[in-house]
Amino acid sequence: MAFKFVDNYRERGARKKLVTQLRDERKIEDKRVLDAIGKVQRHFFFDETFWNQAYRDIAFPIGEGQTISQPYTVAYQTQLLNIREGDKVLEIGTGSGYQTCILLELGAVVYTIERQEKLYQRAKLFLTKMGYRPNFFLGDGSRGIAECAPYDKILVTAGAPFVPEIMLKQLKVGGTMVIPVGDEKSQKMVTVMRVSDTDYERIELDTFRFVPLVGDQAW
């Protein structure tokens, strides 16, 4: 990035307005999630030419066929995870790194994996410059990161055709996975809680549209 990290009055005001919109219109209730979104400077994830788009409640292209997720989607998924300080969280699909920063602001210990090398390198450099320190991995996120398991929470930020069994086995008992599941056009947001070594509870929620999860255990 060529620009300096300058968070001026205009961007702070736009971020505050976005938080109000998520709370009052989108009905995001978790104050900690809203506070994290109010703190992470989303415009830095955009080319400076498009800073005026950064605090609109929309997804936006970041290259390599991927997007930075709509703020509502980030808030919705994060709220479902119910992050607690010190939770060990696996994030499937680093992308821009914006969602990663939200998780870190909530006190999670984040393991994030990205299959696109350009996005991986960009996010690793950029988040480090911003002062964020997740654990970065390059590879097939549809397989999770077995060597670092188990996890308290798993967040999948791309649409999957099914819930990968290999990921479920990386959850701690009592842990929760949030994953969009469906076809390539739309997905249901699904939460899966591991209640024992062999048993899981699954709940289907609202409909979303994500870029597809690509990999050995996905599309």
Rank of each mutant, 00 (worst) to 15 (best):
V190Y: 01
Q170L: 07
K88L: 08
G86F: 08
G97C: 07
K88H: 10
K188D: 13
M177H: 06
G144H: 07
V109R: 14
V89R: 04
V178Y: 01
G139S: 07
L171H: 06
A123E: 03
L103V: 11
S142C: 11
G86D: 03
C148G: 09
R115N: 11
I145S: 04
I166T: 15
D183H: 06
K185Y: 13
V109T: 15
K124H: 09
P150L: 12
I113Y: 06
I102L: 12
S96F: 03
L119W: 05
L104Y: 11
V181G: 02
V89E: 01
V156W: 04
P161N: 06
K188P: 00
T94S: 08
E114R: 08
G95M: 03
P180M: 13
T191L: 11
Q121D: 13
A149F: 03
G131V: 02
L138W: 11
T176P: 00
I83D: 01
L127S: 07
Q99N: 13
V156G: 01
R143G: 13
A158P: 04
I179G: 00
Y98S: 04
K153Y: 07
N82A: 15
Q170M: 05
L168G: 00
A158H: 07
G95S: 02
Q121H: 15
G139L: 05
E114S: 09
R115Q: 14
T191I: 13
V109P: 00
T176D: 02
T94E: 01
S186A: 15
T94L: 02
V190N: 01
G141P: 09
Q187M: 10
G93T: 09
D183Q: 06
G95R: 03
T112D: 00
T128Q: 15
R194F: 03
L90R: 05
F136C: 08
P161Y: 10
Y111V: 11
R84Q: 13
M130N: 06
L138H: 14
F136S: 11
G97L: 06
G95P: 00
E147W: 10
I83R: 03
M193H: 13
G107R: 12
L106G: 02
G174P: 03
Y98L: 09
G139C: 08
L106N: 04
E114H: 12
L104C: 10
G97W: 03
Y151T: 08
Q121W: 05
F162C: 13
L106R: 09
Y98I: 14
V190A: 00
V89D: 02
Q121M: 15
P161G: 02
I102N: 00
D152A: 10
P180G: 01
L171F: 06
F137E: 12
I92Q: 00
F126Y: 10
I92H: 01
A146C: 11
S186Y: 12
T157Y: 02
N82G: 12
I154T: 05
K129V: 11
L119H: 06
E105Y: 05
G107D: 01
